[in-house]
Simulated assay, not measured.
Amino acid sequence: MSINRVALYHLETLLWIDRLGTFSAAAERLNTTQPAVSARMRELEQRLGTPLFHRDGRTMALTAAGRKLVRDCDPLLRDMQLALLGSGGFAEASGVVRIGAGEIAAASCLPAFVARLKADMPNVALEIEIDLTANLIQQLLTGRTDIAFAAGPIAHPALKTSPIGEVELVWLANPAVAAAFAGGEAMPPVWSLASHSPIHGRMREAIAASRIAQKSLNLCNNARMMIDIARAGGGIGIFPRPMVRGEIAAGALVEIAAMPALAPVAFHVAMRVADTEPVLTQIFERAAKLDLAEVAV
Rank of each mutant, 00 (worst) to 15 (best):
L48Q: 09
C73K: 09
A223W: 15
R211Y: 03
A91L: 07
M259F: 03
A182I: 00
V97D: 01
A257M: 10
A173T: 11
E166F: 05
P35D: 08
Q282M: 12
P122Q: 14
L85P: 08
A182W: 04
R19A: 08
F239D: 00
V295C: 04
D18G: 07
P75I: 11
D228N: 15
T142Q: 15
G246A: 14
E255I: 07
V244E: 08
Q282F: 14
I137N: 06
W16V: 08
A263T: 01
I283N: 06
I99S: 10
G49F: 14
A39F: 00
A93L: 12
L48V: 11
T161I: 14
G49V: 14
A206L: 06
L14D: 11
L217N: 12
R245A: 10
A252T: 15
P111H: 13
A249I: 05
M80D: 00
M41N: 01
V167W: 06
Q214V: 07
A107R: 12
G95L: 09
R241E: 12
F23S: 00
A257H: 06
G21L: 01
Y9G: 02
T32F: 07
E127W: 09
G251K: 09
L193D: 04
L11H: 12
P175E: 12
L62W: 09
A101S: 15
E168N: 01
N135R: 15
L69E: 00
R67F: 05
N123I: 12
T133W: 01
G251C: 06
V190S: 10
A155Y: 04
R241M: 11
A91C: 02
P175W: 09
V265W: 02
I137A: 13
A180M: 06
A25C: 01
M41K: 05
A101Y: 04
E205M: 06
A119F: 04
G21K: 08
V279W: 09
S195W: 00
V279D: 06
L292T: 08
A173W: 07
Q139K: 14
R29Y: 03
L117T: 13
L69C: 02
V265L: 07
W191M: 13
S216P: 02
Q214L: 08
R78E: 09
A249V: 06
A148I: 15
I3W: 03
K160R: 14
N4R: 01
R116Q: 11
T32S: 10
G95A: 06
N4T: 05
M271T: 13
R67P: 02
V177H: 14
E294D: 05
L159V: 09
H268N: 09
H10L: 10
A173D: 11
I227F: 04
L85F: 04
